[in-house]
Design a protein around this nucleic acid. Structure first.
Lengths: 340, 340
DNA sequence: GTGAAAGCGCTAACAC
DNA sequence: GTGTTAGCGCTTTCAC
């Protein structure tokens, strides 16, 4: 009857308790590192746990603690398109790594912003298998943010929300300053007609970069030249640049490196030379930016750090280590290479 | 005492039962669509559920059913590097979309294959908040597969495992055939010195594509010319191509489109013309392949379908609708454009 | 420092 | 067709 049956089923606290000659509660205390356990019993229990390779049932724990140690990442985008930009992959990587290191696992939600999105957003908001949420990029409409709020599910936004609600948590980079710095750099280089290729009208990050461009242009008393948005894609950058080629520009600030790469192709296709005929600048400082010909002058944004800060932020909130809302704006840096 | 208290806490089955004047079990039956409920009570209960916006606690359900409706995706890579290729983003998208549609959510694990990987792999294997796992790409060593097996956690591999175990589930594409078709196409075009740029030695998909290349070359009685592996990166393709430029090749089959794009840059930088001087072919048929100059001849692989099949596969297993192991090899297609 | 017992919210076997 | 009841595996008072 006291067989040492090695069943294929998972062990539970009761098993460990029996095998180490203590009660369930004591085993629980050991696992949760409660102080009130004698060193001797702790060792004995730990040894049994190790021996049978026991891992507690997290669903059962969640049922009583009301906490799963799971965060969600929501990317509300037609991702196949956006993923041609390394921004999201890098973000995913830093979020999952940071979360895993802090003992959290990560649930991924990729939704398009159109069509059946309501269903999926509802699915996300009401999903009971997450403690909190990181929302990456803010094409999300206000109603979604409000739904999250009503559900009482903590969340942090990467990128600033369109309407700045003081109690909404977010992490962002200095988009406006980045646009300003790069444009200013072009002005200092005596460029006469400096154009801008925006990303996506409805994205705040895109609008902020454009605002920085405009500030520098106006400070210098120059005329703004704004191309059609390039949708943050290589082809988009190519097409927007084609439009600009008719307008005798001698410098272009693109709202992303990927668009800058597209624009460079258009410039080369037109038989023009960089940076002599046209200077070009990007934003992001993705890996490829250093490998273009000529190497791309751009604004570095700390993508990995963005994910880290967002993750640490949401986890602080979930662990109750932070009560106020937090807004963090990470610094950018002008990287001067040869394209401008 | 019978206050209609609208508390901010979550409702539970008991609440719904009370509000609709039935027992917990009946509510449970309604939610789980059991047949034995009268239409009248069903409607009443559904109305209450809708009214208070009730969503069952999945952790509690999991505790009794032993099933969470969660699958994990494991990508065992230094992802920042691999993600420059749109393969994984597309895969992620199709897996999450398919899973969500089937009522599953998806947990993401990105691990590097080096350093602390043991810890994370252990974390993944022992994580109790997943029913099954999709392992994307097989740099995973045998010991990991064995661990999964021991844990009894069902899994399916995308890409063939290095050692073909008949009871291991996997989904793959016709890598060998793709390599064969493209090489054969170059042979038909009278190319004399056809080289190959492999991806990553330890990846089976890479080796299979190379095997297809070799089969076609040998059938034609030609000499094989194998460049150093390009690591599936654009720079890698560039560098491998530089090596080939010294060897008077007139055609190159690259194991991925991204490497082909890098190779094209090297060819252009050498002042050579495509396809006249050198024909070039890729593998994947990523979006950018149609936009290169000249447009890239390549082998189309159904990436989205790969994710769908893998997801449907693991879910069939989890839902007990399939008892035998399954191996599916999806067809590829030669896409002839202008580069070869 | 340790154990007994209650209960988290749900499902399912069993009674009626 | 519906209600009662016994757990699923864990944490957490409360005794001792």
């Amino acid at each position: 009857m006291d067989d040492e049956v090695v069943s294929s089923k998972h062990h539970n606290l009761e098993d460990i308790a029996r095998l180490s000659g203590v009660s369930r509660s004591t085993v629980s205390r050991v696992i949760n590192q409660h102080p009130n356990v004698s060193e001797k019993t702790r060792q004995r229990v730990l040894q049994v746990i190790d021996q049978v390779d026991f891992h507690p049932n997290l669903a059962a724990r969640a049922l009583v603690t009301q906490k799963l140690n799971v965060i969600g990442i929501l990317i509300p985008h037609i991702v196949s398109k956006v993923f041609s930009d390394p921004f999201f992959p890098l973000l995913l990587q830093s979020i999952t790594n940071t979360a895993n290191q802090m003992g959290y696992s990560v649930t991924l939600w990729l939704t398009s912003t159109e069509g059946d999105s309501d269903d999926i957003l509802g699915q996300v908001v009401n999903h009971r298998l997450m403690d909190g949420l990181i929302v990456a990029s803010t094409v999300v409409d206000e109603s979604f943010i409000q739904k999250l709020d009503e559900r009482g599910k903590p969340f942090v936004i990467i990128g600033s929300p369109n309407r700045l609600d003081p109690h909404v948590n977010y992490v962002d980079v200095e988009n406006e300053i980045g646009g300003y710095l790069l444009t200013q750099h072009m002005i200092k280089q005596q460029r006469q007609r400096i154009a801008h290729i925006p990303g996506l009208e409805k994205l705040r990050s895109s609008r902020d970069r454009q605002a920085g461009y405009l500030r520098a242009i106006h400070e210098a008393g120059m005329d703004a030249i704004i191309a059609p948005p390039g949708n943050f894609s290589e082809e988009g950058g190519y097409r927007s640049m084609q439009v600009l080629l008719d307008q005798q520009v001698d410098a272009v600030f693109c709202a992303s490196d990927i668009m800058a790469i597209g624009a460079m192709q258009a410039i080369r296709a037109a038989g023009l030379c960089m940076p002599n005929d046209i200077a070009i600048g990007g934003f992001d400082d993705i890996h490829q930016a250093a490998l273009t010909n000529p190497p791309l002058t751009t604004v570095h944004q700390p993508i990995l750090r963005l994910g880290e800060v967002a993750t640490e932020g949401i986890i602080s909130i979930l662990d109750g280590r932070v009560e106020t809302s937090f807004h963090q704006i990470l610094p950018v840096e002008l990287i001067i290479r040869q394209s401008a």
